[in-house]
């Protein structure tokens, strides 16, 4: 691990309460990530006590600043605002339930190098559920008869690695792969490139804007890449409770996704995943 090299990256993590989880997300950089220019923690309507605890827990971490943005929750507005409050040449948009672990060592540096190339836009990576066994995210594909889904979600990481090139796991997640999108739970992108498309579309409220961002950047010849090898932990529950998604998110997602979609093969970058969603089959 090269700690003397500070990457010109601003890590932006929005949170509401959950002080310990948020502090762990930030501190995991110190343990398993590269040195970065800054980590910006944005409180969105946290309680005073939780906000104070975040400050206490992160006060000894280098380059961490805690700021507040107390507006009604809108992922896209908060991260756009957060990007403006940061100064790194590159930005990482990260959920507060994502954590770097031993297997993350070197991964961000790899993503950084990838994202530095002229034709590369957003970069993402493998995320594993909190059980450290099952895949939460290995890139996003546009889903025929649906909207978008994570490749290999819910599959055992071990199985995916040991059955590479099988019908079920046609793509090797140890390699870098071009993708339609990568999840907004962890995205690394060069500031000038995200600025060139106007950032996240704030018409989205809860979900869809992360995929939309990637699609818009793809169209601008800033290709989205999934960077293989290593993983981070995404502590999202495998059995999520129902969170109502506003209809408008579906509306704008469709309008965006359809522009990056190929009805003859499904997802243009992962056709081996989408080929089974054929017309006429339930």
């Amino acid at each position: 691990m090269i700690k003397d090299l500070v990457l010109d990256v601003s890590v932006i993590i929005a949170f509401k309460d959950k002080a310990k989880m948020t502090a762990t997300a930030a501190s995991s950089f110190t343990r398993f990530g590269p040195a970065v220019k800054e980590i910006v923690l944005i409180s969105n309507n946290s309680s005073d006590s939780e906000l104070q605890e975040v400050k206490n827990l992160t006060k000894d971490l280098p380059n961490v600043k805690v700021i507040e943005r107390n507006v009604p929750f809108n992922y896209h507005k908060i991260y756009n605002w957060g990007i403006k409050q940061s100064s790194g040449k590159f930005v990482i948009m990260m959920n507060n339930d994502v954590e770097l672990v031993e297997q993350s060592v070197g991964l961000i540096e790899k993503m950084y190098r990838k994202a530095s190339k002229p034709g590369v836009g957003v970069c993402g990576c493998t995320l594993i559920y909190g059980d450290k066994r099952h895949i939460q995210h290995a890139g996003v594909f546009l889903q025929p008869k649906g909207m978008a889904d994570h490749m290999y979600i819910g599959e055992l990481y071990r199985d995916v690695i040991s059955n590479v090139s099988s019908t079920k796991f046609p793509y090797d997640i140890r390699n870098d792969l071009k993708m339609t999108a990568v999840t907004g739970a962890f995205q690394l992108v060069e500031r000038k490139k995200i600025d060139s498309v106007g950032g996240l579309d704030e018409r989205f409220i809860i979900g869809g804007g992360d995929v939309d961002l990637c699609i818009r950047m793809n169209k601008k010849s800033y290709q989205t890449w999934f960077v293989g090898g290593g993983y981070m932990i995404h502590k999202e529950s495998m059995s999520r409770r129902h969170i109502p998604i506003p209809y408008s998110d579906f509306y704008y997602s469709y309008l965006s996704y359809i522009t990056g979609y190929d009805a003859s093969v499904g997802d243009p970058f992962l056709p081996k995943i989408t080929r089974n969603f054929k017309y006429g089959e339930q």
Binding site: Q143, G146, M147, Y254, I258, A263, V265, K278
Partner: peptide, 8 residues
């Protein structure tokens, strides 16, 4: 909800 069309 709108969805992507089926393959083919």
């Amino acid at each position: 909800m709108p969805a992507m069309p089926a393959v083919g």
